[in-house]
Design a protein around this nucleic acid. Structure first.
Length: 604
RNA sequence: GUCCCCGUAGUUCAGUGGAUAGAACAAGACACUCCUAACGUCUAGACGCAAGUUCGAUUCUUGCCGGGGACACCA
């Protein structure tokens, strides 16, 4: 089973008593029922047909390709089969019209009443509209999601920002599928980088008033010290390695004290960034904590130390201990250095064990990292599965693409990355300039709006790209606040809320008999109903970009409706309906943005 | 060398075994006495190349070309 299948399993929409059952599912189930006769004849097996919303609206609200698939299997004419099926479907409450079209599509036009019911559903269920629940009772539904993973003695980079934003959204999307998510941060507070940095700080010398510095400024100093050490590593390797051993062995003294102080300063800085991005972890694993166990795992599975007849998966080579992945088609990875320290590879193994020990009822784990670690995690997961069966189909790596500068990745080894705070600061400045040009709120309000807009802009930019593809960061025109962007969607939300405030409506009942809707109303109404299926796909396929596209289209349709249909100035049932539509749109925009980790504001 | 990812309009990106490949930005035109113009309407423009599988391929497979990455003591 792959991750997508596991995520899909047993996830169903939360149903209320008289809920509008999703039309896509109704059609799918009905067709599946109908084709059983055909299947038993020849194929016997399952077939994969789809019920989808065609892009071209003249092709109906929903459409299926079942007839063409059956035609291939049964060697019959697709149109003929389509005709047969369409006549048997018979869902009079739901379907207004069925059309059979060459080469064999069956297109459904859904009754307007269905969409109105769906709007009522939105207004009733509010914040939990579109949320799913997991009905699998055989498995626990707890899921761990690891993301962020900064190093304490090295800069928090744009890469970490991207990982954090992606991780937050994935967590929310999976939570929305009904899983209980445990957000995890595995941060690197041990290893060569800590020694390099500590050495660098000693060389540079801490300024006298350092304690009074701002936390981000402190971190800048620390990160620079790391860069300095990297640049001067070759000439000072011996001294740095000595420091490394002292840190590993926790030998008390000035070095360890300084190392710990740096760690505290760095953590303070990192926590502030996480909080800024809206991330609060449920559990954190410092690398130093899994270090001891890593050594044990290596020892237990080291070939040469095992008694005759037992075969370990690690072996010694040139003084180091390695995993030879060749027979599995994988690379060779060093598990322990010749100095006797476990490498990150070994630490990732003990981290895996630690997670399942702390959370015995964990269904599965997702580790999010940038894509260059893909091959590496193949090996980690393979080793975990070899060491213990419990990891089979329960430990997954989800890679995401980089944030590139002018089409290039900034050097990671040297530490000369763009700092995470730089990009946050920059997006905030762009937002400040923009709002200063456009609006005349008081300073406090301006700042509040700028923060929300900057965050929406950055998060949307990152999440609107395919998950494992790179995102280009062009400092000159880096964040769009117009067109396909977070602020555009935010703006649509603000407009909707503004109308609802002015109309002073409390409870919308939507108790209207006569509905003759214009194209703007209908376009918006129909699009709203697609929200649940969109979040389902975005979650199960780990594809926040699908939700981005959906929300943008929703905002566009709302803006179109907004300019063409007076809402407050309308009267009677029309006003009532338009207000409901506005409220429904605002609700879905808010729910959707929340799944992207974007907070809404009321004015901008 | 082995393996992995990517290649869609001038640019930045979506999308899909199906019916006319969607947007945004930039360009050009329009609208604007009206609930927030960070808005709306219209025009022009693209699936790297080649074979294969298929009723049907931009999507799947293979090869090639181009860009990026991983592969022994750093995470």
């Amino acid at each position: 089973m792959n991750l997508q299948e596991i995520l899909k399993n047993n996830v169903v929409l939360k149903l209320s008593e008289d809920m509008n059952f999703p039309v896509k599912e109704v059609l799918y189930l009905r067709i599946a029922e109908l084709i059983e006769d055909y299947l038993s004849e020849k194929t016997g097996g399952d077939i994969n047909f789809v019920v989808e919303c065609p892009t071209e609206e003249s092709h109906g609200d929903y459409s299926t390709n079942i007839a063409m698939i059956l035609a291939g299997l049964l060697k019959r004419k697709p149109l003929e089969i389509a005709e047969e099926i369409s006549q048997k479907i018979s869902l009079p409450d739901l379907i207004e019209k069925i059309e059979v079209v060459a080469p064999g599509f069956i297109n459904f036009k859904i009754k307007q009443d269905y969409f109105v019911k769906e709007l009522k559903e939105i207004l009733t269920r509010k914040d939990i509209y579109g949320a799913f629940c997991n009905i699998d009772h055989e498995h626990p539904n707890k899921v761990m999601i690891e993301f962020g993973q900064p190093n304490t003695h090295k800069a928090f980079t744009v890469g970490h920002i991207k990982g954090t934003i992606s991780g937050l959204s994935v967590s929310k999307l999976i939570e929305n599928l009904g899983y209980q998510v445990v957000k995890t941060n595995y941060y690197g507070d041990i290893g060569m980088h800590t020694a390099k940095c500590t050495w660098g700080v000693i060389q540079k010398g801490l300024p006298k008033d350092f304690d009074d510095w701002d936390k981000h400024k402190k971190m800048e100093f620390i990160a620079d010290a790391y860069v300095y050490a990297t640049e001067n590593f070759d000439e000072n390797e011996e001294a740095i390695r000595k420091i490394n051993l002292k840190i590993y062995k926790e030998s008390k003294g000035k070095i360890l004290d300084l190392y710990n102080k740096i760690k505290d300063w760095s953590r303070e800085h990192q926590k502030a960034i996480f909080a800024d991005l809206g991330v609060f972890y449920d559990v954190e694993y410092p690398e130093s904590q899994v270090f001891a166990e890593a050594k044990k795992i290596i020892d237990k599975n080291l070939n040469s130390k095992l008694s005759a007849g037992q075969e370990g998966i690690f072996s010694e080579s040139q003084g180091a201990i390695i995993y030879d992945g060749e027979k599995e088609g994988l690379n060779t990875w060093v598990m322990q250095t010749s100095e006797g320290n476990p490498t990150y590879s070994a630490k990732d193994l003990s981290l895996g064990f630690q997670k399942f020990e702390d959370y015995p009822d964990l269904y599965f784990n997702l580790t999010l990292t940038s894509i260059e670690q893909k091959d590496y995690f193949k090996a980690v997961i393979k080793i975990l599965e070899t060491l213990d069966d419990k990891f089979k189909n329960r430990y997954f790596h989800v890679p995401f693409g980089w944030l590139l500068m002018d089409g290039k990745k900034t050097s990671s080894r040297s530490g000369k990355n763009i700092k995470g705070t730089d990009i946050l600061e920059e997006s905030l400045n762009v937002a400040r300039t923009k709002i200063a040009e456009l609006k005349d709120y008081d300073e406090e309000k301006k700042e509040e709006i700028s923060k929300a807009v900057a965050s929406a802009g950055l998060k949307f930019l990152i999440l609107s790209h395919e998950f494992n593809k790179n995102v280009n960061y062009d400092p000159k025109k880096f964040i769009d606040f117009e067109g396909y962007s977070g602020p555009y969607i935010l703006y649509a939300y603000v407009r909707a809320k503004s109308i609802l405030r002015k109309a002073e409506v409390e409870n919308l009942t939507l108790d209207i008999k006569d509905f003759s809707l214009n194209e703007y109303e209908l376009n918006l109404l129909k699009w709203l109903a697609r929200y649940p299926q969109t979040t389902f796909r975005a979650g199960t396929e780990i594809a926040p970009q699908l939700l981005c596209v959906y929300l943008f289209e929703l905002a566009q349709r709302f803006n179109s409706f907004y300019t063409n249909c007076p809402i407050i100035k309308a009267s009677g049932d029309e006003k009532q309906f338009r207000l409901s539509l506005t409220a429904g749109t605002a609700q879905v925009l808010k729910n959707g943005l929340n799944l992207l980790g974007i907070e809404t504001i009321e004015e901008m």
